[in-house]
Structures are given as structure tokens and as C-alpha cells.
């Protein structure tokens, strides 16, 4: 989960697309497409993370003191369960990453998941902004490519005639 910045990087410079050769433009387009794909992938994994945190947060609403002693099914594998009883409805243990787990009360856990959802959503917004920007550039490149090809064809035709 890395921080994503929309700041232009050092060494970036403006280039006039129409000044590039067709080959250069095609190269640029391929590079951009690769970047776009990478970002769409990170968007998808962020979405998964967001849903997971959201889901865990929703479960916290269901664990109340009244549910103490209630029977539950504990999953041993994805398809096998054993019956159990809720013994402690005040505290939960949360996986915070790198193999560390912390004990939190329900309010603390809710807060934790809310914070996480917010963090992931913010990251998604940043990626989305960059994605839109890249899409724009990609469209511009498409236009220039078409123009260049038309120019070349014209030149060929005038040569032939």
C-alpha cells in the first residue's frame, strides 16, 4: 500500500507530439498503455482491499453484548465449519500486517476499519486522477497517430500521381 503522488516527476518535460516520428509515437503509446494497465490493476486491488475493510467494519456492528453466548459456526476451511460460542463480545483481535495482531475493543475496531477504508479510498482517488490524466494523453496520441498516417498516405498518393 504505497502512497501515490500526482506530482510531476523531476526531469519531466513537455513535448510536442506532432514533432515526433510515427515510430516514436507508437513507442510512446505502448509505454502509456503499459502504465494504464498497471494503474487499472492497482485500482482493482485497492477496490478489493476497500471491500474487505468495509466488510470487516460492518461485522463489528453485529457484535454486541447481547450476542454473547450465541452459537456461531467457525470456519476451519472455506467449506468446513465447527459450532462455537461467542465468549467475548467486547474485544476483537485485528491483523495489522507484518504478522502483528492487536487487541481492540469494538469501538476501537470500528475506528480502525473506518480509518483504513478512508485511507484506501483516498489512494483510489489519487490513482483515478492520474488515470484520467493518462487517458487524456493516450487519446491525444491516438489523434496524432491518425493524423500522421493520413499525412503519409497523402504523400504517397501525390508521389504516385
Amino acid at each position: 500500500m504505497s502512497e501515490i503522488s500526482a506530482q510531476p516527476r523531476r526531469g519531466m518535460q513537455e513535448i510536442d507530439l506532432t514533432q515526433l516520428s510515427l515510430q516514436q509515437i507508437i513507442g510512446l503509446k505502448q509505454q502509456l498503455e503499459g502504465e494504464l494497465q498497471l494503474m487499472q490493476e492497482s485500482m482493482a486491488s485497492l477496490k478489493v482491499a476497500q471491500l474487505r475493510y468495509q466488510g470487516s467494519g460492518d461485522i463489528m456492528e453485529k457484535i454486541t453484548p447481547e450476542t454473547e453466548g450465541q452459537e456461531i459456526l467457525v470456519p476451519l476451511t472455506a467449506s468446513m465449519f465447527v459450532p462455537g460460542q461467542l465468549k467475548d463480545t467486547n474485544e476483537v483481535i485485528i491483523d495489522v500486517g507484518t504478522r502483528y495482531y492487536v487487541k481492540k475493543d469494538i469501538a476501537g475496531a470500528k475506528d480502525y476499519f473506518q480509518r483504513k477504508v478512508k485511507f484506501v479510498t483516498e489512494q483510489m482517488e489519487k490513482v483515478q486522477a492520474i488515470l484520467i490524466e493518462k487517458k487524456k494523453i493516450s487519446d491525444a496520441i491516438m489523434d496524432v497517430t491518425e493524423m500522421k498516417i493520413a499525412q503519409q498516405q497523402q504523400a504517397l498518393q501525390s508521389q504516385a500521381s
Binding site: M1, S2, E3, V96, G97, T98, Y100, V102, Y112
Partner: peptide, 11 residues
């Protein structure tokens, strides 16, 4: 590094 940083913030 990022993951550890997030864990540190939580701790």
C-alpha cells in the same frame, strides 16, 4: 517498507 510503516502507525 510501506507495510511496516503502516504497522508502526497502528502500534
Amino acid at each position: 517498507l510501506n507495510e511496516n510503516d503502516i504497522v508502526k502507525q497502528e502500534l
